[in-house]
Design a protein around this nucleic acid. Sequence first.
DNA 1: TCAATCATTCGAATATTTTCGAAATAACGA
DNA 2: TCGTTATTTCGAAAATATTCGAATGATTGA
Lengths: 103, 103
Amino acid sequence: MRKLYHPQVDEINLSTVLYALSDEIRLQIIKSLADHGEQACNQFDIPLPNSTLSHHYKVLRESGVTHTRIEGTQRFVSLRYDDLNVRFPGLLQAVLQGLEPRA
Amino acid sequence: MRKLYHPQVDEINLSTVLYALSDEIRLQIIKSLADHGEQACNQFDIPLPNSTLSHHYKVLRESGVTHTRIEGTQRFVSLRYDDLNVRFPGLLQAVLQGLEPRA
DNA sequence: TCAATCATTCGAATATTTTCGAAATAACGA
DNA sequence: TCGTTATTTCGAAAATATTCGAATGATTGA
């Protein structure tokens, strides 16, 4: 695995993105990225086997929600905030706001 | 079936809503409701068996995305636009905008 | 080259979803 | 009450997703 697949902005599909965001674990990942910015895979504090997490990173990446950068043996994941905002303005913001605990 | 289950506003769950909206058929239904307002089940122009459509109406209704009103032998479906906007401001609008054909 | 580290892929079990025909339900009007 | 209309539920098949241990791959530093 030299290169990881990332859809181009134009290829990002609405139902695929919504699907990627419809899972509690993946929402946790997104929330963590929104709060802390780019993070290495081993910095997420989610108590699940790596193989399971890796699956979720892949779903998020292939849907166009996240970008994964390789550096050494690590993978750095970030939100494709601007790309998503071009393709689906306001969507990610609304989802992130929906993740905030209610008053 | 005298009463249909509808979650209260407070019970509407983000990942459940996103999941409901992550299917192309259900997005078609949502789009039609956004364009035409409340519609009877038999007014959607979607060429699928009734049992399949009924399943999708149920997923949308039970997630809190739509409301179904019984009148005679018909069911009238509408978007819970205001309720969703209270619970997840901007989300539905962003999704509907994302359904518009791109320039 | 070896071992350590970080993460992905494989493969198989389990779980969930989607689909749709057939049967059931409910309301209405003749 | 009977037939018609509108829709849901049931049940079962097919498709898809999730989970996780074990194996694999890639990079780094000794």
